[in-house]
């Protein structure tokens, strides 16, 4: 049972910013609570103060801008899944978010919480990172935009300062990218990923039948201390004159080597590393070759 903590209930973003710049004890945000409350039940020392941001309307919106979509950090997973432009153009994100937890978890859990939690297994992170998403960090004094790729520094750790909050996730608009996400877990539903991969890719078919990769973005989850971009693999693919079976195979091998997984209660190093390649291969098969 939860015990020994106190709650602050600021009623606007301004109040939140004020509170977190003045608070003199360690605190955590409470948004959907699906992560923070679970940890506190496990370990009552996890947080002594919660700042309840679940009711801050300004944080829950999803909006379309000229060249971006802006997702409030308090947007629930269900809201992301119901947002038509994502369903149309950001398949990778939708697939990942649809796989987070259970219907119960998705109806209260948020994207900001998934990012704020900074778990290498956070499922929304890989597709967001693959889409070059950025987060807006705000404090009473300042406002900065950080690339999601630069946001995480380790399991549970990020560059966010104690007086900052994630307000938005900024998702650039793209033309021509097809995307997908895939994972392996301990079972088929309600499972934490052992490995996950997100791919966004745009290929051009030459009249001679060869396939060139015009743009590609790959992110891998649960195989390093943070979710990572597979930059070397991307570079290899971009430079490949023809994306044939051999090239795909080589790309998958590079992806395996880019991962730095650990052995834990869910899986082991060798398997995780090898599966990065398998998942990437599957995604390429699906998105490029329609298999």
């Amino acid at each position: 049972m939860l015990r020994n903590f106190k709650v602050l209930t600021p009623s606007s973003l301004n109040e939140v910013l004020y509170v977190i710049s003045h608070i003199d004890q360690p605190y955590r945000f409470l948004c959907g609570g699906t992560d923070v409350l679970v940890r506190m039940k496990d370990n009552p020392a996890y947080a002594k103060v919660l700042v309840d941001i679940s009711k801050i309307r300004e944080l829950a919106k999803i909006e379309e801008h000229k060249s971006t979509y802006v997702i409030g950090s308090g947007a629930k997973h269900d809201a992301v899944l119901a947002y038509a432009p994502f369903v149309e153009k950001y398949n990778g994100l939708v697939e990942a978010v649809a796989a987070i937890g259970s219907p119960q978890i998705r109806s209260i859990g948020t994207l900001g919480g998934n990012i704020g939690n900074a778990s290498p297994a956070g499922d929304s992170i890989a597709p967001l990172m693959a889409f070059d998403a950025e987060v807006e960090l705000r404090s009473h004094e300042s406002n900065r935009i950080v690339k999601l790729e630069d946001f995480f520094i380790g399991p549970g750790k990020s560059v966010m300062k104690s007086n900052e909050i994630i307000t938005k996730i900024i998702l650039p608009k793209f033309d021509g990218l097809r995307s997908g996400w895939k994972r392996l877990g301990q079972r088929r539903a309600v499972t934490i990923s052992k490995v996950s991969a997100a791919l966004a890719i745009n290929c051009v078919k030459h009249p001679n039948g060869s396939i060139r990769v015009a743009d590609v973005k790959i992110a891998l989850g649960a195989v390093a201390p943070t979710v990572i971009r597979a930059r070397k693999t991307e570079k290899f693919l971009l430079e490949t004159p023809n994306l044939n079976a051999a090239a795909v195979k080589q790309a998958c091998e590079i992806a395996c080597r880019e991962s730095r997984p650990i052995t834990d209660i869910r899986s082991n190093t060798e398997y995780r590393s090898e599966m990065c390649g398998v998942l990437l291969g599957d995604l390429i098969d699906r998105l490029v070759f329609g298999r």
Binding site: M1, V7, L30, D42
Partner: peptide, 27 residues
């Protein structure tokens, strides 16, 4: 379970299926 993992505490909150064990009083 008290941890959002089993669904035994499922209620409907504002039209969504919700694990009552993970809804803190303030919210």
């Amino acid at each position: 379970c008290g941890m959002g993992e089993c669904g035994a505490c499922t209620v409907i909150m504002d039209g969504g299926v919700t694990p009552a064990c993970l809804v803190l009083a303030t919210t």
